[in-house]
Design a protein around this nucleic acid. Structure first.
Ligand code: ZN
Ligand code: ZN
Ligand code: ZN
Ligand code: ZN
Lengths: 171, 171
DNA sequence: ACTCATAGTGTTATATTATAACGGTTTTAG
DNA sequence: CTAAAACCGTTATAATATAACACTATGAGT
């Protein structure tokens, strides 16, 4: 059973995030082209916000950002955007595995590792509020479920605690 | 690593539930006495509902039951109970590990295995809507987190799929 | 028994998160 | 050029959760 224990949690580590972000966006575009699904301007706008922050955002937080951008673009005249617009974009992004929902925070985060989105696993630091996706999800749980004759559709794994950096600093 | 694979998920199995329920209640009472915390009438009332159903209930579903009971007791005259009453009872029961929150359903379920409530793990059947708590939670995930220098406070593990019975029947 | 502190309860109002329903516009397939 | 489907925008409302305040019961110390 001894799997590779060298996990990388990019969101907890120093990294060139502007490159990380543009890579995510490129990846998303390719993925949508390959699947013949449409990454429309709205969806792109929401995904861009999420990849930029690299952290969970609430639906209404995203909504506020969109409205900000509307003001900047069009000068304060125009109507403000309504919740369904955000939820619909999120629905698409979730379905394509480009975004995950963090159930214990009612929030959404862009996927770091498209490919195993059906079994994403997260570490959530209560110190710095950062959330990191495990890059090699643990499968022993799913195996156990399988042994019970349980056919897995989707798994939610969210571990809350204090990350290494916050442990160092807080001590 | 080869752990015991003989999981029992009592909520998915035939069992004498009225005995299961009264045992849970006895256990809760003893636990509260030992800890010198008060299982007040309200808290008892909410816990009773949850152990009776042995399934997740939403806060407002619980609220409706309470109001039902008020009507039965006092004849329809009296005021109806308000949300904070339920949420406060739940807050207590969660803190004592007598109840778990199912994040992916915004619902609450009584604990089958008081003792490891810090690391409960659930199987959620989308066929029969039953939810079962694993009686020996998998620890390999928590170990991985630990190896990353992450101090775990609380873990949420909720696996959605189709249980064995529903697989049989649905095929 | 009196007094204060604390924990529990009840009530009102409101915040936060999410969806239903409808109509218009754009895209796509035939 | 249509007709169907997908997408978008808007209004209204549903579902979930908490803030704030006042009252009551309990308990410890005097
Ligand atoms: Zn990054
Ligand atoms: Zn941290
Ligand atoms: Zn039972
Ligand atoms: Zn089932």
């Amino acid at each position: 059973m001894s799997e590779d224990n060298t996990q990388h949690c990019i969101a907890f580590e120093q990294h060139d995030h502007s490159q990380c972000q543009s890579q995510s966006m490129r990846h998303a575009k390719t993925l949508c082209e390959n699947r013949r699904v449409k990454l429309t301007p709205r969806r792109l706008q929401v995904l861009t916000l999420l990849t930029q922050s690299h952290q969970p955002m609430g639906a209404y937080e995203i909504l506020d950002c969109l409205n900000q951008q509307v003001v900047e673009m069009e000068g304060k005249k125009s109507q403000s955007i309504a919740p369904p617009i955000v939820y619909r974009a999120l629905e698409f992004l979730l379905a394509e595995g480009l975004v995950h929902r963090i159930e214990s925070k009612n929030a959404f985060i862009s996927c770091d590792h498209p490919g195993h989105h059906y079994a994403a696993q997260f570490l959530i630091c209560s110190g710095c509020e950062k959330v990191a996706e495990l890059d090699s999800p643990d499968s022993s749980l799913l195996t156990k479920a399988d042994n019970l004759g349980f056919k897995v559709d989707h798994s939610v794994v969210e571990i809350t605690g204090v990350c290494r950096d916050c442990n160092k600093n807080g001590a």
